[in-house]
Design a protein around this nucleic acid. Structure first.
Lengths: 188, 188
DNA sequence: TCCCCTAACGTTAGTGACTAACATTAGGGG
DNA sequence: CCCCTAATGTTAGTCACTAACGTTAGGGGA
């Protein structure tokens, strides 16, 4: 009852994503209109917006937060930067590795457009808020927690963008490297 | 020759900024149209866009970078995070303190709208690029430099947003606190 | 002081993202 | 197999932003 036709919506959504990625790669994000995406997927423009809200939405479709928050909870040793980066390491280890090609494809598109790079950061705000909430619950003051969480999130985002753009190395390695630097230690 | 009527343009620009800030504060950023800003300033809508390019542009009007880059140059001791935060401390000390009320007014507006928070980060990309350039020139690899610069810039941005939103403390103190946390050390 | 040149501004006509209100269809559950 | 409702369609807008071209105002050189 509450969710009849579940698969039809999912099919449309999947078709829209595929078509959108193709068009973004071929013509660039700016030169692709939402109308053309909808047309190529065989639906109306409204349907696109019902599924993704914004044109950028089709590129930012994650649900990671809970694992990260869980891995940070209770961790109370060392400076905030370390606690967050260590937590993210642990969360990453416990999560199933996502389809690397798929991820790279999306981030590569994001890397090419300033508007999208900003959007990526905006998208991480949700995760950032969750991290801040947990740190405050563990006794940190809100200001420090916010600054530390924002630092790490943006550091990681920057690392992912560099990875997707310069296409060297594996996702896992680059992520670990970014976490090391963002944690305050250098490598080499 | 090359710049007749310099003062007329500056006057218009100044009028637009004042009026825009007033309207943003009164009605919110989203509910203020560029048309209404232009009308209230007594010019056409086109003139607004000629001066600021985008609706957000009127809020992001800085020129800080050179001092920061200069303060980072040559600094080669310690991890990247420290070198950047220490450099920013030094740059801040050498620069004339900006009009605090003016700054707070703008950032307070930015803090209230997600779209603008993202825009603030996008706006710092220019400074971030400059910092990365200097670090690479000083021998760092590009990946680490990018991650570290992004971390610090976003940490600072987050700190400024918290400061303007919760209106406690002085700009200088909050900035220093943010730099401490973003540098990898905690306070208290 | 008085033109004159050009920066600054205006007008018009458009594109494209996004929204609201209401009508229609398709497909799974009873 | 029909019915109910999620999913989609239609229409008609608003608003940020752009391009091309026409108009004015005000400061510098005579």
């Amino acid at each position: 009852m509450t969710q009849a036709n579940r698969s039809r919506a999912e099919a449309t959504r999947h078709r829209l994503t595929e078509v959108a990625l193709d068009l973004f790669e071929r013509d660039g994000f700016d030169r692709t209109t939402t109308a053309s995406i909808a047309a190529a997927a065989g639906v109306s423009e409204m349907t696109f917006f019902r599924h993704f809200g914004t044109k950028q939405g089709v590129l930012f479709d994650d649900p990671y937060d809970p694992a990260i928050v869980h891995a940070i909870a209770g961790r109370r040793e060392g400076p905030l930067l370390r606690r967050i980066t260590e937590g993210m390491r642990q969360a990453w280890a416990e999560l199933p590795e996502p389809a690397e090609a798929q991820v790279r494809r999306r981030i590569a598109i994001v890397a090419t457009t300033p508007e999208l790079r900003a959007g990526m950061r905006a998208n991480m705000e949700r995760t950032e808020d969750a991290v801040v909430g947990q740190l405050v619950a563990d006794g940190s003051n809100a200001f420090d927690a916010r600054v530390a969480a924002a630092s790490v999130m943006s550091g990681v985002a920057a690392g992912l963008l560099e990875w997707a753009a310069s296409s060297d190395g594996r996702l896992h390695d680059r992520l670990m490297a970014a976490l090391t630097v963002a944690g305050g230690a250098d490598r080499d």
